[in-house]
Design a protein around this nucleic acid. Structure first.
Lengths: 147, 147
DNA sequence: AGTGCACTTGCAACCGTATTGCAACTGGGT
DNA sequence: ACCCAGTTGCAATACGGTTGCAAGTGCACT
């Protein structure tokens, strides 16, 4: 049962890190998730498998450093991590939507700025991240929920 | 010495807060500053005048809540505050560009999302804020400045 | 397959930012 | 001048994240 070629393990190894169970679990968890997860969420999930908080933190940072994960900060003072799809160097990131009520984060691959906006913003600088905030449909449409 | 009409005091009062020395000092300090200050920087300055850290924190948040200050987060997990110029209500509704290097916040009235993006995002929820992050031309083009 | 060393892990202590509880104080309307 | 809700100072606390260190383990090399 010497599982010779686990492609995910190889990916981790190729990036210069050891393919430990904790790292494997971290990476797989985030690849299964459809939205970025916080440190807390990840380490909570991994705690079931006996993985320590500190280890989860370190692995998230390590994996982010080698480009397998992306580390973002959506303005609520919590780091979030998401798996990078495709070639790390190709990855330029995509916009996120943060519900200010429930904290849910959605990834918006198709959201773009108008050409005119891009021209306008180029005068200011180079945009690296687009963040939309508001009330998600689950929180907003009832209009009764107030924090 | 019933200083009848200090315009700044009036401004604070009009927003529903009491015009205390601590708030006056906080607001004036940020209005004199040319760039956003962290709570640490503010409370350090105000400590000389016998104002407590916790009070500084509360006042910064209070003033931000009523729209006299703007509270931003550059990605380093530290809140920064800056005085809002002009009418507070003018401050809402248009996108902001935040330079993650120097902390400058620029208002981008003309930046908009494409129609398709709006359609896409409507499925998620109601967008109340658009924030662009990146490197402003002043910080980015030298490419030497690294924090 | 066995060995060894550097890389990882778990644990617990720690750090810094930010918040809160509470008693004392005070701005400002009366 | 008086009074009370709003505010302050102090200290304790919460929370996200980091670090030191000894034990454990991946994996490259026999």
């Amino acid at each position: 049962m010497t599982a010779a070629n686990d492609p995910v393990k190889d990916e981790i190894r190729r990036s210069g890190l050891r393919a430990t169970p904790a790292r494997l679990a971290t990476l797989l968890l985030l690849r299964e998730s459809t939205s970025p997860l916080t440190h807390a969420e990840v380490s909570q999930q991994l705690a079931d498998r006996g993985i320590d908080r500190a280890t989860a933190f370190r692995n998230l940072n390590d994996l982010a450093e080698v480009g397998l994960l992306r580390r973002t900060e959506l303005g609520d003072h919590v780091w979030r991590f998401e798996a990078v799809r495709g070639q790390p160097q190709d990855d330029t990131g995509h916009p996120h939507f943060l519900c200010v009520d429930c904290g849910t984060v959605s990834c918006l691959d198709d959201v773009k700025l108008t050409a005119g906006s891009l021209r306008q913003s180029a005068k200011i600088g180079e945009i690296t991240e687009i963040l939309l905030r508001g009330h998600c449909n689950g929180c907003g449409d009832t209009s009764a929920t107030r924090q």
